[in-house]
Design a binder for these strands. Structure first.
Lengths: 199, 199
DNA sequence: GTCTATATAGTGATAGAC
DNA sequence: GTCTATCACTATATAGAC
């Protein structure tokens, strides 16, 4: 009789690979990458070690696949935001809104992207702040300076002052220091940051 | 009252405990806590496993001792800064200066304090952003709002906007995204942040 | 493709001589 | 206090049946 339930749970996902990724993301962010073993993922996903190694070369490959997926997805989103807003002012506000709503809607994903120390478990990866999404944001700020929307100043300083508070606020939220949804604070954070850099 | 100087059997380091802490801090921050084994610390410090376990209950205890020491030291420093500057404006600038010069002088210490995910290896510790140093900074900002130096707004938002850029800039530096000493950027970062929150 | 069983290496930690 | 030798355990990863 025990055997009857063996397959039922897995009806929801025809995609074992996706299940592994999802489970990995959950455990990596809640317990930490190094506090999560392949066996933990196996147990949580209710599959076998063999299956995991069928789809991924190893534990690090799971993290790498997650990371690549999520960087790409952020990249698309940010490209879209930048291309559909005219002024740098509007763009920056939309970006803060995107980051906050992403944190509200999928805090685990956000934690993995913005808070994890990727290089500790993916030693060959460049730092996250040198990835494409960040480059695009820096380019946006440079445009703002060139067009006079933002005061003349070092572009990294300007980028940091404009988006640093948002990143910091997200971190406080993920740490549990700030409770409740972030979205209501988009304007408070963004407008104060903007006030600091605007012409 | 006979004062005899502390014995030094070993000329190089009379203080084995201190050597272990120093070595631990170095390895924990450069390789990461989980990528550092007790045996690594043993080899790097050129002592024996037995010595390490004579002074510390285990690996986590080394991290905990480091953490406590450094939180205390930051705590003292921040208390001092707040008590020797009158206006919140001056205080906040001095705090940014302190954080930047600490990063320049001992990046490894700063990395361990501001960037490490302590809860992954010290599960019982409250989040760093809830520790005394951060509470003091928040209280400072609240004073600034009460006295009219800072605009009326949520105090956590104000704290985040005033110090978020500095923390973010430090992070970029520790990541390797920004090169060179941070101290020359104290005013650029601080004045822009202050501009956002001031009355 | 999925499974179980197992190989291999490295971990944190202990015992006990000196 | 410091050392060497060794423990018990867990981790990643592989082999091979079905």
């Amino acid at each position: 009789m025990a055997h009857t339930s063996k397959k039922k749970i897995r009806a929801s996902h025809q995609d074992t690979r996706g299940l592994i990724l999802k489970t990995g993301l959950n455990l990596f962010t809640t317990r930490g990458y190094f506090n999560t073993s392949i066996h933990d993922i196996r147990a949580e996903a209710d599959i076998s070690i063999g299956s995991i190694y069928h789809y991924f070369k190893g534990k690090e490959a799971i993290a790498k696949a997650l990371y690549d997926d999520l960087v790409n997805s952020m990249n698309k989103e940010i490209t879209d935001i930048i291309s559909t807003n005219d002024s740098v002012r509007e763009c920056s506000r939309a970006l803060v809104h995107y980051l906050f709503s992403m944190t509200d809607n999928s805090p685990i994903t956000t934690e993995f992207m913005l808070h994890a120390k990727h290089r500790e478990f993916m030693p060959d990866e460049p730092p996250f702040c040198s990835t494409e999404p960040f480059e695009m944001i820096k380019a946006l700020v440079e445009r703002g300076i060139a067009q006079g929307e933002i005061r003349e100043m070092d572009s990294i300083v300007a980028t940091t002052c404009l988006f640093g508070p948002a990143f910091r606020y997200i971190l406080l939220h993920l740490d549990g220091t700030v409770k409740g949804p972030l979205e209501p604070y988009v304007d408070a954070i963004w407008s104060t940051s903007w006030r600091g850099v605007k012409q």
